[in-house]
C-alpha cells in the first residue's frame, strides 16, 4: 500500500470511524435485544404448553430457514408498508435481533435439555419449587453450557451487521464503499474494512475460548 492510500485513509478517517461506531451499535443493540427475546424463546421451547411450543417452534424454524439478508430487506420494506415508520437503522436492528433471538432460543433450549433429568429430580427431592430449581440448579448449569456458543453468536451478529449496508445504513461497510466510490481504491479499502472486522471478530473468538475455559466445570 502506497502513501496514496494512507493519505486517503486519513482524509476518510471521520466517516470510517463513525461507520465503525454504527456497526458496533448495531451489533450491541441486536445482541442485547435478541438475547432477551431468545431467552424467552428458549424457555417457551422447553417449558411452554404444547400450543405455545408449536407456535414458537414455527417462529424459530421460519427465521432460521430464511437468509438474514431476506429478513433485513423484508423488515425494511414491509414495516414501512404497514405504516410502522422505522428508519433503515431501526428496521435493520429489528431484523438482526429477531435472527439473534432464534439462535439464542435454540442455544437456551439445547442447554436446558442437556441437563440430566436426575438434576430436577434431586432438586425436587430436597423440596425445591420449580422456580427455585430453575434459579439454583438448572439456570446456572444451562448458563455454563450456553455461554461459549453465545459469544460466537455475538461474532455472527457483528458479521451480519454488514448486511445493513444494503438498505443504506451508514455502517462501516457502506462508509467504506462511499470512500471507494470517491477514491477508486477498492482493493485497499475493502482490505482495510475486512481487517477491522477480522480484528473485532477474532477478539470475540478469543474471548469465547477464554469463556469456555472459565466456564468449564472442574473435573
Amino acid at each position: 500500500m502506497d502513501f496514496g492510500f494512507l493519505d486517503q485513509l486519513w482524509v476518510a478517517r471521520i466517516p470510517l470511524l463513525k461507520g465503525l461506531g454504527v456497526s458496533i451499535s448495531i451489533s450491541l443493540l441486536s445482541i442485547v435485544v435478541g438475547t432477551v427475546l431468545g431467552v424467552f424463546v428458549g424457555l417457551a421451547l422447553t417449558y411452554g404448553y404444547r400450543p405455545v411450543q408449536w407456535l414458537v417452534r414455527g417462529y424459530t424454524d421460519f427465521i432460521r430457514g430464511t437468509p438474514v439478508l431476506v429478513l433485513v430487506l423484508a423488515s425494511y420494506y414491509v414495516l414501512s408498508t404497514v405504516g410502522i415508520d422505522l428508519g433503515p437503522f431501526q428496521a435493520g436492528v429489528l431484523a438482526l435481533a429477531v435472527f439473534c433471538s432464534s439462535h439464542v432460543g435454540e442455544l437456551v433450549r439445547g442447554a436446558l435439555q442437556s441437563i440430566p433429568k436426575g438434576q430436577t429430580e434431586a432438586a425436587k427431592a430436597i423440596g425445591l419449587t420449580f422456580p427455585q430449581t430453575f434459579a439454583y440448579v438448572l439456570g446456572p448449569q444451562a448458563l455454563r453450557q450456553a455461554l461459549p456458543a453465545w459469544v460466537n453468536t455475538a461474532a455472527e451478529m457483528v458479521k451480519a451487521s454488514t448486511l445493513l449496508s444494503i438498505i443504506g445504513v451508514g455502517e462501516l461497510l457502506l462508509r467504506t464503499q462511499e470512500v471507494i466510490s470517491r477514491t477508486f481504491m477498492s482493493l485497499e479499502f475493502y482490505f482495510f474494512a475486512g481487517f477491522l472486522y477480522f480484528v473485532i471478530n477474532y477478539g470475540i473468538e478469543r474471548f469465547g475460548r477464554y469463556v469456555e475455559r472459565k466456564t468449564a466445570v472442574p473435573s
Binding site: G194, Y197, N201
Partner: peptide, 13 residues
C-alpha cells in the same frame, strides 16, 4: 481469517 470476516465483505472484495 475466513471465519472472522463477514461474507459480504468477501463477496464485494
Amino acid at each position: 481469517i475466513i471465519r472472522n470476516t463477514p461474507i459480504l465483505v468477501l463477496v464485494l472484495f
